[in-house]
């Protein structure tokens, strides 16, 4: 049985996020008032926060996960780690070393139903950038190097989950071959899971979430099909999770959303990171 390894401090899981930092990411995300780069950065920072929350115990943050973040396109034809002087790091290290802290407020209720506005600190690990072209192939090659090193030391671990967020086609060649080589990498528990989220900038665009074939994708958008081919098939545990949330998935559905708005981006990140945390020990 695959995708069933217990995730523990001895056998941590890995989440690797890839973010497009090309200039077009400065355009507003469809249906929102903020840019795609801002929404994507906020969503990933929030997802890391959620992962830290799940790993936090009385004795501190337990290293159930390793995390890596790669940005591509901040500098022309360049991909690099977004964590200063680090590649893949244990999650406790992220918890202890955010780039900065933001003050945020939320309302919580006491047992009598009185709402109390409380201030809390929200960490930020990387800032949004939208600057140059889309060297996705370089980003994927860097991810492959990191995955190769990580898998060499984690044969028995839950397979790495790679989540790529982009708004367009690669400008440095065809990423399909590198993506397929990433998907073919594996631990004893199964192949690397490669997720793709394509962000939309047009309000009212219909998102296509977790397609099982390419006929539902717009035929005019070549990279829509390319990203489909670059995405893993959803394993059963992820399918079950998506079905519990009444999402339209079926065997063969890909880990992929095309024309995602903010809701779809958040849903993809949540499902992509939620199923492995069910295996926490």
């Amino acid at each position: 049985m695959v995708y069933s390894s217990e995730i523990s401090r001895r056998n941590p899981g890995l989440f690797l996020f890839l973010i497009d930092q090309s200039r077009s990411m400065s355009h507003k995300l469809g249906g929102t008032l903020r840019s795609k780069s801002q929404e994507a950065a906020d969503a990933i920072n929030r997802q890391i926060y959620e992962l830290i929350y799940r790993c936090t115990k009385s004795d501190g943050v337990r290293d159930y996960f390793d995390i890596g973040i790669i940005g591509y396109g901040a500098v022309s034809d360049t991909a690099d780690s977004l964590l200063k002087d680090e590649t893949i790091v244990p999650i406790s290290k992220l918890a202890e070393n955010p780039l900065r802290m933001e003050k945020r407020t939320e309302k919580i209720s006491d047992p009598d139903g009185n709402e109390v506005e409380t201030e809390f600190e929200f960490p930020v690990w990387f800032e949004p950038v939208a600057n140059s072209n889309t060297p996705m192939v370089k980003g994927l090659k860097l991810a492959r190097e990191w995955l190769d090193d990580w898998l060499a030391e984690h044969h028995d671990s839950y397979p790495p989950v790679v989540i790529n967020i982009s708004d367009g086609a690669a400008t440095d060649g065809d990423p399909l071959e590198v993506a397929k080589s990433i998907i073919s990498m594996s631990s004893m528990d199964g192949n690397v899971l490669f997720w793709n989220c394509h962000l939309s900038e047009l309000k009212g665009q219909t998102p296509v979430a977790f397609p099982a074939d390419t006929t539902v994708l717009p035929a005019t958008e070549k990279f829509a099909t390319q990203l489909f081919e670059m995405s893993s098939e959803l394993p059963e545990s992820f399918l079950n999770l998506a079905q519990e949330r009444a999402l339209d998935v079926q065997p063969g559905s890909r880990a992929y959303v095309f024309n995602a708005g903010l809701d779809e981006l958040l849903e993809l990140l949540d499902i992509g990171t939620r199923a492995p945390t069910e295996n926490l020990q």
Binding site: I52, Y53, T56, S58, V61, A95, E96, M101, I108, T118, F120, E121, P123
Partner: peptide
Amino acid sequence: PWFHKNKAI
């Protein structure tokens, strides 16, 4: 620390 405070609430 922030990660304890935010969860302990």
